[in-house]
Design a protein around this nucleic acid. Structure first.
Lengths: 199, 199
DNA sequence: CGCATAATTCAACAAGCGTTGAATTAAGGA
DNA sequence: TCCTTAATTCAACGCTTGTTGAATTATGCG
């Protein structure tokens, strides 16, 4: 395709290796503690090469959290499952987290968002809104549909943080099926119970 | 009392002012992005003075997240409330978060724990275990009491992150009573429903 | 007052950071 | 082979950070 490619077809793509290293390091350390020098070392290249390919730490980070999440599109269809919708929703959510690639990107975004990195906070807000809230909220009846949907999402995100970030036992080591079985009825309750109790 | 106090009785306690500034800055920025120079500037003193009083950034941070949380002791008593226990539990939890002082300390701990600061992660684990898990888990019947308690706590922490850290709407601006009313029935369900559904 | 001690500031160090531009090596087409 | 272009490295700048030790100022007691 490109006449100006300096590498052979089967050779390792250094740029991709840097990106993989970046995802891994950002996931472990978050934006602040991650260093370009550390990412370069992980990829086995010179720090300048990282800058040559990605321009800046900001842009490298942006490239690291840019992730397509195929299974999440099934969220919209989950609601036709009736009483099993809650279980299916939780299953979809955690199936993404249990894969190494997406998990690294999500962890990087999450860690950095909590750390206060503006770009990451914004990315996290957009991600939750676009991938989850916009697919779930319209399916929940009542004026407070969006609020209810977000509280429900907070339950899932809260578990993700406890399991993958803080690694609190026994959530960190429990089979994901046990956790799904536990949370599914509560998710279902958010979907069914449309009336806000009087206060 | 102490013969060796260099300040008058009514004079401002510089050490306390530094600590207040530290809590505020750590809460906003987290451990990594917070700087001793920034904290010193906030307190209106020289950076060296911070070091003189607290020794190191680590120890200053440790002092900043060391917080007594009086109302949380009431958690143990909440379970005698029967069907209202879930509502009371959520109320206690968020009443702590809605106060400025404790919120700053909690935010600092949370932000830094997510950022990967070892000391903060450990502090957060201990905090959740000591203040919440140990009080709640024994009250939940079944072998998986601890797991269920932690999933329940994850729901509360997840909302706290969405509301106070990421500030996602409409959770960030909703009256806390609305959120409590929403989450209370799900908390109650964690308390009541003792059987783990077959998988 | 004068002295001891605490409170506070000043100036500076060493280390690590992101970033830069020039130099060097490797590769592919004419 | 030569020459253009990409890939990669080298060395260094400027900046910020936590930390340090000496110098300076304020304070309270005898």
């Amino acid at each position: 395709m490109s006449r100006r490619s300096g590498r052979r077809a089967g050779a390792p793509d250094t740029r991709a290796e840097i990106l993989t290293a970046a995802k891994s390091v950002f996931a472990e350390a978050g934006y602040d503690r991650a260093t370009i020098r550390g990412i370069a070392a992980e990829a086995g290249v010179d720090p300048s090469l990282v800058h040559h390919y990605f321009g800046s730490k900001d842009r490298l980070f942006a490239a690291s959290i840019d992730i397509p999440l195929p299974p999440i599109e099934a969220v919209s269809k989950a609601f036709s499952e009736g009483p099993a919708a809650g279980h299916l929703l939780a299953t979809i959510f955690f199936s993404v987290w249990e894969q190494h690639g997406p998990r690294d990107s999500l962890l990087g975004m999450l860690r950095s968002a909590m750390g206060g990195e503006d770009q990451a906070v914004e990315a996290f807000r957009e991600f939750v809104t676009r991938e989850l809230l916009h697919r779930i909220a319209p399916q929940i009846p009542g004026e407070d549909g969006t609020l209810r949907a977000l509280v429900m999402v907070s339950q899932l995100v809260g578990i993700a943080i406890t399991r993958y970030v803080v690694k609190l036992e026994p959530i960190a080591s429990a089979p994901i099926e046990d956790i799904i079985a536990l949370v599914a009825p509560r998710i279902q309750l958010y979907l069914d119970d449309q009336a806000l109790p009087a206060r």
